[in-house]
Design a protein around this nucleic acid. Structure first.
Length: 560
RNA sequence: UGGGGAAUCGUUCAAUGGUAGGACACCGGACUCUGACUCCGUCAAUCAAGGUUCGAAUCCUUGUUCCCCAGCCA
């Protein structure tokens, strides 16, 4: 039977499109759009929609427009438009010359509203906001008709024109569709189409004091652009009858099909715009691009790749079930991609000084190290080795537990890409008892070779030459929240993970990283994937840990 | 409570009247100069109860649970 694969995903939306193409609807044409409101940065949930809409266009040789749904000037700005453009491009998609703004349709939409008034399908209502709410009724009681519902076409036209002209205060009047105040679906109880709002718009500035509502602007924008399949999230299901009603009255020949799918939720993070804004504005994170944020810009800075995000979006699929995707799947996709492309290097987070007693004082050797164990075409690099090294503090234990195969008194380990060394002694601070350094000897026969006597040395640890390594700052990230579904908690702030950022200033990385490019990713062997942060420069090297390597040792250690 | 949706392994997506399958997670093993990668294996699900049928996750009936809607937000 049909298998779901990344290259050929199947889902209910594609089933609908296949059906439409088979029956030659829209002359076999497919047109979608990605319609964000520019009042925030886009996040992984938007990425799902981006991959869906642009992916569909790619798959069916159709088109996907980028449209800024900017019908409410409050909170919208060019900064957000710019970020959206940048982020969608970065994700790997292009809309050619089809960049649109709902605000470019304001004049057309106004004319459509006039048309609706003339056909007796819309009226100016002068109830106050409170009165409108009271008239709307409840889930179980029908609404009451507005006393202004039966104004003449002439009066409506006159009032609406004057609304536009700025003759009235905010809230004095609204334009409403005349549908059915007794409709079981509350959306259909004479929904508001236009409101007066004296708020400068980032694009039209002060030209307009009336703005169309989503329900009016969105469907008509779709129809105007010739969208065939208008894909949105589940909460708009109730609005579909209104979508169809409006287009049916105004552009009936060109009615897009609205299809709803479940929005994405990811465990241990929040995705609602309101909550994301709160994190930024109240300073719980450093900004929209904080590497802990699920925003596209945050993930980019963290070191996630577009390929990984696209893979993730393909893996999670598209359905109508409410979902909470395990963040482990996202991390899996990131590791899978970075494992392929990230060059290997060695870096020490928390150094422990090691002196190789039998290694000549002033000698240095350059070891050729593979940049990728499975991809020889990625080449090698020279890594200097000398008498004094740093190893990871965790790679030595005075009194190791069972199964610990790293360095300990009396033990040997392989230094990755170098020699096998053997523990000889340790030096502690006489007062505090703190371990200062350890002394080892090396086996000269074991450079790039197994021990001559056939003995087994299972442990392999990474190292950096103390005289050659470069100091660096490393930022370790953990999940932003410490409960699975913080988005479902009203007081989500109290579930913030206090340890979501750990800054380590003691790091030493191999010298090949001295001029590493900001934005580039590496695997620090045995530790994880790291990305050069943009704070790097002027003698400062800063890394973000993208994601740690899978680690079976901590599980073993925890179990014992 | 009226309306609109959704219920399948721990999580997620499939199976469109004919062997309930994949991915992630988990657990076990092989390999290993990364306790990584890779490979192999185990565990594990049809919301419930009836009905139709040779055969039901799928069709019918009745329930149950969860999500969305009473912004001049989108």
């Amino acid at each position: 039977m049909t298998q779901t694969t990344a290259s050929n995903p199947t889902d209910f939306i594609r089933d609908i499109i296949d059906q439409d193409i088979r029956t030659n609807k829209n002359a076999g044409r497919l047109a979608t759009r990605f319609p964000p409101e520019p009042n925030g940065y886009i996040h992984i949930g938007h990425a799902k929609s981006v991959c869906l809409n642009f992916g569909l266009a790619r798959q069916y040789q159709g088109t996907c427009n980028l449209r800024l749904d900017d019908t409410d000037p409050a909170g919208e700005s060019m900064e957000f438009v710019d970020s959206i453009i940048r982020d969608v491009h970065w994700l790997g998609f292009d809309w050619e010359d089809r960049l649109f703004y709902a605000s470019d349709y304001f004049e057309k939409l106004y004319l459509f509203a006039i048309e609706l008034i003339k056909s007796g399908n819309a009226y100016v209502c002068s109830l106050s906001p409170d009165e409108i709410r009271e008239h709307r009724g409840t889930f179980t009681e029908p609404g009451k008709e507005s006393p202004y519902r039966n104004r003449s076409v002439e009066e409506n036209l006159n009032l609406f024109e004057r609304m536009r002209a700025g003759e009235f205060e905010d809230g004095a009047h609204v334009l409403r569709a005349k549908i059915d105040m007794a409709a079981a679906n509350i959306v259909m109880r004479d929904p508001i189409l236009y409101r007066i709002k004296r708020e400068p718009h980032y694009r039209t500035e002060t030209k307009w004091v009336i703005y169309p509502m989503y329900d009016f602007a969105h469907c008509l924008s779709d129809a105007l652009e010739g969208i065939t399949h208008s894909i949105c999230t589940l909460e708009f299901e109730n609005n579909r009858p209104l979508y169809d009603w409006i287009v049916g009255k105004l552009i009936p020949a060109n009615r897009p099909k609205q299809i709803e799918f479940a929005r994405l939720s990811v465990s241990y993070t929040v995705l609602s715009k309101r909550r994301l804004i709160e994190l930024v504005q109240k300073g719980y994170v450093r900004g929209w691009d904080d590497p802990r944020m699920p925003t596209v810009t945050g993930m980019r800075r963290r070191g996630y790749t577009p390929e990984a995000i696209r893979k993730f979006c393909a893996q999670i699929g598209v359905a109508k079930n409410d979902n909470l995707i395990d963040v482990a799947l996202l991390e899996h996709c990131v590791r899978e991609d970075l494992n392929e492309r990230a060059p290997r290097v060695m870096g020490i987070l928390r150094p422990l000084r090691v002196v190789i007693d039998n290694y000549p004082e002033n000698q240095t050797e350059d070891f050729d190290c593979a940049n990728h164990p499975q991809r020889p075409e990625m080449g090698t690099r020279k890594v200097p080795f000398s008498r004094v090294l740093y190893i990871e503090r965790d790679d030595f234990m005075e009194d190791p537990p069972k199964k610990y195969n790293r360095l300990a008194p009396g033990r040997e380990v392989r230094l990755r890409n170098a020699y096998i060394i053997k523990f000889e002694s340790m030096v502690k601070d006489e007062q505090s008892g703190e371990l200062l350094e350890i002394h080892c000897t090396y086996d000269p026969q074991t450079r790039n070779a197994p021990p001559a006597d056939g003995r087994k040395v299972p442990g392999v640890i990474h190292w950096v030459s103390a005289g050659h390594g470069v100091p660096a700052e490393v930022r370790l990230y953990d999940r932003l929240f410490n409960i699975e579904d913080p988005g479902s908690e009203e007081d989500f702030i109290k579930y913030l993970n206090p340890d979501s950022l750990q800054t380590v200033m003691t790091c030493h990385v191999e010298q090949s990283l001295k001029n590493a490019e900001p934005g580039s990713q590496y695997q620090f062997e045995r530790l994880g994937y790291f990305c050069v942060d943009e704070d790097t420069g002027a003698g400062r090297l800063v890394f973000n840990r993208v994601v740690p390597l899978r680690d079976s040792w901590t599980k073993i250690a925890a179990g014992k």
